[in-house]
C-alpha cells in the first residue's frame, strides 16, 4: 500500500466468539482496506478460522460487529444464557442482532475457501465453477426448469469457461473434481470462489499441505488473481514465506486475542509474536 487513500472494505469491531465457557475469539478488531492483502496468523487453535466463520455468517458472534463496505453484516451482543456466561469485554456496546445466512454474505461480495478443501467432489471442474453463477441468475424457477433462459444459461457457461481459462484449469474442465491432484483442487476451490464475483476473498490456509514449489506457484497465483479480479484478500496462513512475501499487513492472534499488527517487517521483529510462536523462558 502506498500513498492511496485507505478505503476500509472489511471491519471487525470488538468481535468476541464464545462457545459455552470457552472464548475462541476475544475482542478482535481488524480492518482490511481496498486492494490490500492482509494475513491473519497465529498458532494452531488461536481462533483464526472462527473469525472467518463469523465474517461469513457460519457463526453469529457472541459480541461485536462486522462491517463490509460500510454496511453492518453481522452484529450481536450476549443474550440468553450467554448474558451471565459472557467472559469477554465491551458488553453493552452493541445492541442489535444481525446474522444473515452465509449465502447472503456471499451475495454481498465476500467469497471464501475452506481449510479442508470442500469441493463438490462428484461433480466436474466446470460444474463446480458453474454453480457459483446460480446465485445471480435472474430467471425464476419455472423459466429455468423449462429451459427458457437459454441465453442466460449460455452466458453463465461462457463466463465459467472464461474463468477456468484465466486460472489455467480449462483443459481439466470435464474432470471429476475429486480426481484432481491436491494442488489443482486448491486452485479450483479458489476459482469457484472467484466465480461468485467477490470484492473480498477470504482464503483459509491456501498453502496447507503444499511443497515449496507449489507454494511458490500459489504466491504468484494469488498476486495474479488479485490484479485480474481487482480483489481485496484476507487470508489465514501458516507458511511464513508466503505470508511475508505477499502480505501488505499482518494481524497476529493468539488465544483469540490480537497480539500484534503491522507490516511483515514490524511483525517479524515483534517480541510478543516471537514469544507466541517459540515460547518464552520464564
Amino acid at each position: 500500500m502506498t500513498e492511496q487513500t485507505l478505503v476500509p472494505v472489511l471491519e471487525l469491531k470488538d468481535i468476541t466468539m464464545q462457545f459455552g465457557g470457552v472464548v475462541a475469539v476475544d475482542n478482535l478488531s481488524l480492518q482490511v482496506h481496498r486492494g490490500e492483502i492482509v494475513a491473519l496468523i497465529g498458532p494452531n487453535g488461536a481462533g483464526k478460522t472462527t473469525a472467518f466463520n463469523v465474517v461469513t455468517g457460519v457463526y453469529a458472534p457472541t459480541n461485536g460487529q462486522v462491517q463490509f463496505k460500510g454496511q453492518t453484516i453481522a452484529e450481536n451482543f450476549p443474550r440468553g444464557k450467554m448474558e451471565t456466561l459472557y467472559a469477554g469485554q465491551n458488553k453493552g456496546v452493541y445492541t442489535a442482532k444481525v446474522w444473515p445466512t452465509p449465502d447472503l454474505i456471499t451475495k454481498k461480495g465476500i467469497a471464501r475457501t475452506f481449510q479442508n478443501i470442500r469441493l463438490f467432489k462428484n461433480m466436474t471442474v466446470f460444474e463446480n465453477v458453474l454453480i457459483a453463477k446460480h446465485m445471480n441468475m435472474k430467471a425464476g424457477f419455472f423459466s429455468a426448469a423449462f429451459h427458457l433462459n437459454g441465453r442466460e444459461e449460455e452466458q453463465m457457461r461462457q463466463e465459467s469457461l472464461k474463468l477456468l481459462e484465466m486460472v489455467n484449469l480449462l483443459d481439466l474442465k470435464d474432470e471429476i473434481a475429486d480426481n484432481l491432484p491436491y494442488g489443482k483442487q486448491r486452485r479450483l476451490e479458489i476459482a469457484r470462489a472467484l466465480a461468485t464475483a467477490p470484492d473480498l476473498l477470504l482464503l483459509d490456509e491456501p498453502a496447507a499441505g503444499m511443497n515449496p514449489q507449489e507454494t511458490h506457484a500459489l504466491t504468484a497465483f494469488i498476486r495474479q488473481i488479485k490484479k485480474d479480479f481487482d480483489l481485496t484478500i484476507l487470508m489465514i496462513e501458516h507458511h511464513m514465506n508466503l505470508v511475508m512475501d505477499i502480505s501488505d499487513r499482518i494481524y497476529v492472534i493468539d488465544f483469540g486475542e490480537l497480539i500484534a499488527t503491522g507490516t511483515p517487517e514490524q511483525v517479524q521483529n515483534d517480541p510478543a509474536v516471537i514469544a507466541a510462536y517459540l515460547g518464552v523462558d520464564e
Binding site: T56, V58, T101, P102, D103, L104, T106, K107, A111, R112, F114, R118, L119, F120, K121, N122, M123, E127, I131, A132, H134, M135, N136, R192, A193, A195, T196
Partner: peptide, 17 residues
C-alpha cells in the same frame, strides 16, 4: 447436487439452502 455434495460449501457459493 451442490447441496448434496457439500451443504456448507453450497451455502458459501450463495445458494440459499
Amino acid at each position: 447436487m451442490a447441496i448434496r455434495e457439500d451443504g456448507v460449501a453450497a451455502e458459501a457459493m450463495g445458494i440459499n439452502l
